[in-house]
Write a protein that binds this DNA or RNA. Structure first.
Length: 263
DNA sequence: ATGGTGGTTCTACCA
């Protein structure tokens, strides 16, 4: 089973690129972030024509997340619990093929001296609390998306340039670490310890051409999902296309549950 | 320290 995640920076602007990529890669599931549109304007018919169901949590102008799937999508929940006043469309969760999957668009948090940074940190705390509950179900859980957190020095081009940024500040990284200390696994790092593997390159300053990127799109897996992990790779090709998003897809391959020997 | 680009929307704001 292939599950991919892609921050598309407007599904309207990115539709041709996303359709082309789906036709080529044919993932079972694609998690989308930064739709920048509402449910009623989401291009569901175009995805349906390729065989994908869609669960969408949108809003006007900003944010917006979705789950596309060739398999039936059930038990859809929108919004991250823990703050009734939070009206930003950043979280959608559903069951696909026996796996609980979430598409996450974590707040950016910049500038750090605005209320955006505490909102990000609180959002990370809410995600921690929610992940704890999901882990108690002992189901395969896949939390994928744009976390807006650079986990380590080696996940950016030049750590010095990022040290005071909301994506790299100590509190952000500590809270991301805390998620893993709950028992979640950063799928990309299971079989790949290389530095400078990126999922985002800024539109500005020739960041793509200079490979001055950051790794901020992640798949975090519950133990039951991590046991199924076969591969997790970043597909850099879409970032080099015309009219590209500033993010590129990260792709996760899960196998079938193994039969365990009785011990 | 600033500005560089691209998205939505139409004037700034966000990333």
């Amino acid at each position: 089973m292939i599950i991919a995640s892609w921050n598309v920076n407007s599904i309207t602007a990115r539709l041709p690129n996303v359709l082309e990529w789906l036709k080529e890669k044919k993932p079972d599931v694609l998690l989308l972030q930064e739709l920048k549109t509402t449910e009623d304007k989401f291009p569901a018919p175009e995805f349906s024509a390729l065989g994908y169901h869609a669960a969408v949590f949108g809003q006007k102008t900003w944010n917006g997340v979705a789950i596309l799937s060739r398999h039936k999508i059930t038990d859809i929940k929108t919004g991250l619990p823990g703050d009734a006043a939070d009206d930003q469309a950043r979280y959608i969760e559903a069951t696909v093929n026996g796996i609980r999957v979430a598409s996450i668009y974590l707040p950016n948090g910049n500038p750090v001296d605005s209320d955006k940074y505490p909102y990000k940190l609180k959002w990370l705390d809410r995600l921690y609390a929610h992940a704890k509950k999901l882990l108690k179900t002992e189901q395969p859980v896949v939390l994928g998306g744009d976390y807006n957190v650079i986990p380590e020095d080696k996940d950016c081009h030049d750590p010095k340039l990022w040290k005071d940024d909301a994506l790299f500040k100590l509190e952000s990284r500590q809270k991301f670490r805390a998620l893993m200390n709950l028992g979640l696994t950063d799928a990309f790092r299971v079989n790949n310890n290389e530095a400078h593997q990126y999922t985002f390159w800024d539109y500005q300053g020739g960041a793509w051409q200079r490979n001055a990127g950051i790794r901020i799109d992640h798949f975090l897996l519950s133990p039951q999902a991590a046991d199924l992990l076969e591969e997790c790779v970043i597909d850099t090709a879409p970032r080099g296309k015309d009219k590209a998003s500033d993010h590129t897809p990260i792709v996760l391959k899960l196998g079938k549950p193994q039969k365990l020997h009785n011990l």
